[in-house]
């Protein structure tokens, strides 16, 4: 088990272009499940591949277990990786696939068998050992890839969107399995995804990336409730945080904080919304409205309310809502960075 650290890690693919990864400093905790989250093209894979040693950094260093490994090839880093495509060797059986890393490291055959059986039983794929990868379903392939990664008992697991090839239902159960699997082995894991649900539900901490820059590192609670800037605020949450611009700052509040006025206790800011559109999602409804009157007249605001609590709310009508004062976050208008709380006058 080990800690992964990056120091000013940078990758510039083409000179004169912006870097794919820029000066990333981060340190994992031992045994942690760290998630890289960001939109497509934000540099998550590049960062992960530099940690793996598959991509040569333009600048900066990678440390694993306290040692600088920047110049070591992937095989010498004690890591294992699961690829988005799973990268199962098509010409080898499942058993040979799982045994491949052991064979490459010169583990003798009897020992190899034993480890393969162990890894296969851990993931419940003993019955598939004789098959070829093309004879497996997506979920089975993912397990084989996982078994191949863990068979060597690496100090660090690197996973690049391993669930993105699965259908929605399988993805949910695979998520759960991965989490419980991590709880059992407690190996430091770095997990790349652009799916915030995966990030929130699986990560001990989340690294939010955009354009190769780390925007925030924190627990799911921290990044959701206390976003470091407007990017994080709008990237996480669905629908995203409402942002209302004032002269020198931006006020943000999540759709679920916009509740019918009669349900709010304590200090809160009242707003009147004219509802334009109602989306019904079963247990809850998404209300798209515009502010009616006051300083922010005409701004769009989205509210998310439990279906049970929104009986009288219909399209076209104006209703009184309120946002609890503690739920309003403030950002600097120039930098987008988080700013100190202040008084917000709505009128």
């Amino acid at each position: 088990m080990a800690v992964v650290e990056t120091r000013k890690l940078t990758k510039v693919f083409k000179k004169a272009e912006e870097g794919a990864v820029n000066d990333v400093d981060l340190v994992t905790r031992d045994g942690e499940f760290l998630v890289f989250l960001g939109p497509s093209g934000s540099g998550k894979s590049t960062l992960l591949r530099m940690i793996a040693g598959l991509e040569e950094p333009t600048r900066g260093d990678v440390l694993i277990g306290g040692d600088v490994v920047t110049d070591l090839p992937p095989r010498a880093r004690g890591i294992a990786m699961v690829f988005q495509s799973y990268a199962l060797y098509p010409h080898l059986s499942v058993e040979q696939n799982i045994g491949f890393p052991l064979k490459a490291h010169g583990v003798p055959k009897p020992k190899r068998r034993e480890r393969v059986d162990w890894a296969a039983s851990l993931l419940g794929i003993q019955h598939l050992l004789a098959r070829k990868p093309r004879e497996l379903s997506g979920g089975e392939r993912q397990r084989v890839a996982l078994a191949r990664a863990l068979v060597r008992e690496p100090t660090v697991f690197l996973l690049d969107e391993p669930l993105s090839n699965l259908d929605a239902k399988l993805r949910a159960s695979a998520r759960e399995e991965l989490t419980s699997f991590h709880k059992r082995v407690r190996t430091t894991t770095i997990y790349v995804t652009h799916d915030q649900v995966e990030a929130m539900s699986m990560g001990d901490r989340i690294v939010v990336l955009n354009k190769g820059i780390v925007r925030q590192i924190g627990t799911p609670h921290e990044v959701y409730d206390e976003p470091a800037d407007t990017f994080v605020a709008t990237f996480l949450g669905s629908p995203p945080m409402n942002l209302v611009e004032d002269t020198d700052f931006i006020a943000g509040f999540r759709p679920e904080s916009v509740v019918p006025a009669e349900m709010v206790r304590g200090p809160s800011a009242p707003i009147r919304l004219r509802i334009r559109l109602v989306e019904f999602l079963g247990s809850e409804r998404i209300l798209h409205g515009v502010i009616d009157g006051g300083r922010f007249d005409g701004r769009k605001v989205v509210s998310r309310v439990a279906t049970a609590a929104s009986g009288g709310l219909g399209e076209g009508a104006a209703h009184d809502f309120a946002v609890p004062a503690s739920e309003v976050k403030f950002f600097d208008r120039a930098t987008g960075k988080r700013a100190a709380p202040r008084e917000l006058s709505w009128r």
Partner: peptide
Amino acid sequence: MAVTGAALERAAPRRRRR
């Protein structure tokens, strides 16, 4: 958004050639 690539120091020289 105003937070674009502020931390990027493109001119920083390579420490060593690999």
